[in-house]
Design a protein around this nucleic acid. Structure first.
Lengths: 151, 151
DNA sequence: GGCTTTTAGGTGTCCGTGCAACGTCTTAAG
DNA sequence: CTTAAGACGTTGCACGGACACCTAAAAGCC
């Protein structure tokens, strides 16, 4: 592989990167598909509901939420539009900052989340965790921590 | 986190999955952006060129290629359309199977790949490999191998 | 207090992708 | 041989997301 020599990457290093990519895409697709067929809920929507459920008072500023869900702000706007249309999330004005908006999880949204969660967790277990040994999870965690400097 | 109890996932397990997701998305976005500004080449296109360059005679059947680049067949059709329009790839009929088409890397495509490769490799090094210790790469590789059963 | 600069969120527009359906060709069954 | 079943690649369609730009409000500056 002549391409690699110049920059000093070994074949193994490149392979590792590709495998990471493949694994993540495969798992994500699986989750997306399962959630869609079982609950008519895209993965991105599930993520939003989950983040809101964990947030204090089940609400988050749009901006904060966008950061947590790995979505651009405009992307989040549309996604919240859809969730609001379906009654799973509501928008509420922010008291001390007239620019701000909260996305708030509704009761219907919370119910939907509870419904879909077994599917989500089962997917992660079967497609990801089960394939790793128990002891390895700690290792992965340590390594990923280095990659996730929240930069 | 009451949601987790039912399915028996620990908080750590869920966290690990989320971190993997974040890390992969972050790295992918970085690569995509760098390739785009420096070479006007999306990451998906780079992947196609790379796969073709590694293939015997620099050619692959559309179907095979779709599998390697993690794209649906229809998605690949459009991508190859674009690459063909830009002269980086050509389509060639398959001799013994009239249904089949080869995507073939052109000389221009090979040149473009060589141009862009330093950017690509540097991105992987700086955003991924450098953040892991040298010894850890082998570990990651072993774990990812379990996830990548080419299923 | 006016003035600029920064931040929050939304909109117009474009692009890339997946799914379902289609035409074409191959292969297996009778 | 004929016909049914399957595989390969493309196309119509709709959707989701990003980018650039816009307005409104807050924060900073003199």
């Amino acid at each position: 592989m002549t391409l690699l020599g110049d920059e000093g990457l070994t074949t193994e290093e490149l392979t590792v990167w590709r495998m990471l990519q493949r694994a993540q895409v495969r798992i994500t697709r699986y989750l997306e598909a399962e959630l869609l067929v079982a609950h008519d809920l895209p993965l991105a929507s599930y993520d939003v509901l989950m983040q809101l459920a964990e947030a204090p008072e089940r609400r988050l500023r749009m901006n904060d939420l966008a950061g947590r869900v790995l979505l651009s702000r405009s992307g989040l706007t549309r996604l919240i539009d859809r969730l609001q249309r379906d009654g799973l999330v509501a928008r509420e004005a922010c008291a001390n900052d007239a620019r701000g908006l909260f996305a708030v999880l509704t009761d219907a949204g919370a119910d939907r989340l509870v419904e879909a969660t077994p599917t989500y967790l089962h997917g992660i277990r079967s497609q990801f965790l089960d394939m790793l040994g128990q002891g390895e999870i700690g290792q992965v965690r340590a390594m990923l921590a280095k990659l996730d400097l929240t930069s």
